[in-house]
């Protein structure tokens, strides 16, 4: 191998290392309870270092009824994929459903950080997961159609998971999963059951 080739490969390796370093290095977020991006970011794909996503449905029920279902319906909890739900014993803690736990790669402690009756509940994750997450459930009157329920979640993957593609995949999975969760909640509240085409209870 000639000296010119060594130089070429060396330059390529240096550039690749630098690019990788930029991708890998991300400033570790300090947790600021008042700056939870999901509380202020709406209709934006990004908020600082966070990727923001969410879903909205309108449910023919009052905010109290919707909240009661979210807080107390075990059938809903077992159907949820991404939307955290209240932990029975500790009023300020939420339990992440399985898909959200998988996304964070470990149990994710989620704490309520703001609450306005019939209007808004905001939460954030705590501890060392692979993703830092903030979320918000908001209720708005939608006239004769019912109550618009909007969930916004902001996710910031940490460490090696912070590559843009991983972040985008996380956001896409969250968006789809949150919409499914809200629709299941809507079905349960409006019809008393979650629609299924299964022919038998034991069928896949």
């Amino acid at each position: 191998m000639t000296i010119a080739n060594w130089a070429r490969y060396g330059l390529a390796a240096t550039l690749a290392t630098a690019a990788g370093g930029v991708l890998i290095y991300r400033r570790k977020p300090g947790i600021n309870h008042d700056a939870a991006p999901a509380r202020s970011a709406r209709h934006r794909r990004r908020f600082g270092d966070y990727r923001v996503t969410g879903a909205t449905v309108t449910i023919r029920a009052t905010p109290e009824q919707i909240r009661a279902c979210w807080q107390g319906n075990a059938q809903l909890w077992s159907a949820l994929e991404y939307l955290p739900f209240p932990e029975g014993n500790q009023p300020d803690l939420l339990l992440p459903p399985s898909e959200l736990r998988d996304m964070a790669s470990r149990p994710l402690l989620t704490r309520i950080v703001a609450e306005r009756e019939d209007e808004l509940i905001a939460w954030r994750s705590e501890g060392e997961g692979h993703a830092d997450m903030h979320g918000r459930l908001r209720f708005r009157d939608n006239g004769s159609k019912g109550t618009a329920v909007e969930v916004i979640m902001a996710v910031r993957p940490q460490h090696f998971a912070s590559a843009w593609k991983t972040e985008a995949m996380m956001a896409e999975a969250l968006k789809l999963g949150l919409l499914r969760d809200l629709r299941r909640m809507k079905m349960l509240i409006e019809t008393g059951e979650i629609a299924t085409a299964r022919m038998r209870p034991d069928a896949a």
Partner: peptide, 22 residues
């Protein structure tokens, strides 16, 4: 479903709830 906004207006084929979310 008979209970969603569309069903309440008898637009039954627009029902929000009868198709499984998946």
């Amino acid at each position: 479903c008979g209970q969603c906004f569309h069903c309440s207006e008898q637009r039954y084929s627009n029902c929000d709830n009868s198709c499984p979310v998946e």
